[in-house]
Design a protein around this nucleic acid. Sequence first.
DNA 1: ACGCTGAATATTCAATTAAATATTCAGCGT
DNA 2: ACGCTGAATATTTAATTGAATATTCAGCGT
Lengths: 198, 198
Amino acid sequence: MVSVMTEIDIHTQILEAAEARFQQYGYNKTTMAEISRDCDMSAANLYRYFENKLDIAAAISQQCLDEKELVLASVVHDASLSASEKLEGFVLEVLHYTYNHFDVSPKLSELVEAMSAHRPDMVAKHIGSKLKLLSELVEQGQKSGEFQLESVSETADGILTAIMLFYYPLTLKMFPLEVLEVKATNLCRLLLAGLTAR
Amino acid sequence: MVSVMTEIDIHTQILEAAEARFQQYGYNKTTMAEISRDCDMSAANLYRYFENKLDIAAAISQQCLDEKELVLASVVHDASLSASEKLEGFVLEVLHYTYNHFDVSPKLSELVEAMSAHRPDMVAKHIGSKLKLLSELVEQGQKSGEFQLESVSETADGILTAIMLFYYPLTLKMFPLEVLEVKATNLCRLLLAGLTAR
DNA sequence: ACGCTGAATATTCAATTAAATATTCAGCGT
DNA sequence: ACGCTGAATATTTAATTGAATATTCAGCGT
């Protein structure tokens, strides 16, 4: 039992050390030796807890995505918001989350690159989660009579397609945040005009 | 007069030779020597007609964008289409145009990269043109009573934001064409639901 | 036996240099 | 003088190799 506890601790210890390094120096520039040193162990010992460096990055990235999904879920499940407010909150949350991530610690984009290249399933799963959340949101709006639409899944897919722009760092660097916020707001108004029952 | 004619011919001769090379081997791999050889002249002589290699690429890219804008304009100005049909045509045209470009001759993406990196104004101008076309489309729909909306410019901006996805080669390679077409259709339905007067 | 390490090996990265290419220019033929 | 070229120069790309890093593994201490 004690050994199990210890293993879990070491896992998280490694992840925390690695995350700090990735954040400050980026995925590519941090070495297994540095991570192991931060944990007072040999580099070889890291491999008793993770298959390889990419798996460490994947675990950290997964935490990140889980956290993001949690934030978005809290918007979708916030009982104090109307469906329209939820949609706008969802879109702005996506924009701000992505924007802050690449503004505060641009080094983390290396993690995105690595996962996109070597763990495409993870990215696909995340997209699926967001699609599910949007479906919930749309269905709630429909059930409450606030929205009026033909197909929940097609509508959710359409919304996700429309907000894809806010996931691309390239685009996000083309405009200042205020402009992006205006674009997000314009887009929401457009979408809501079609969804809202009249 | 004869010399002027000749100069124009040489210009187009160079552009055609370069375009063929760029299409087959890509921008990066074609050399000024090869282009000049195709035109039966020295490499030095190319510089009497274009400042540098990038300018040749820019001229070709501009032709390409002009052509694309012409196609989109023909959709917007097609009197036989309703405003809704124009919007759907516009979106599908963008999708197909981009898709075919990178499917038929993926090497041309090197031109896009080069222009994005070194001629950002060109890209911005093209976005502006599309925004103008969408504004026309929206305004026509409003004038005819088919659409009902608050602001033409904000609506056009929202639509352009929503269809940005269809400009990114990365995204286009994530899904097969049929899936993209479904996404485009879903998106159009969503947008039109909000625009169409009821 | 378990959890770890140091040293060995395999892979990746980075600095160096050689080669290819872009660009310039003095001067040739008309 | 005009339109062009070959050769010279500047810049970029590609190949090489040495160093750094990831990964493996035999074996040590408990």
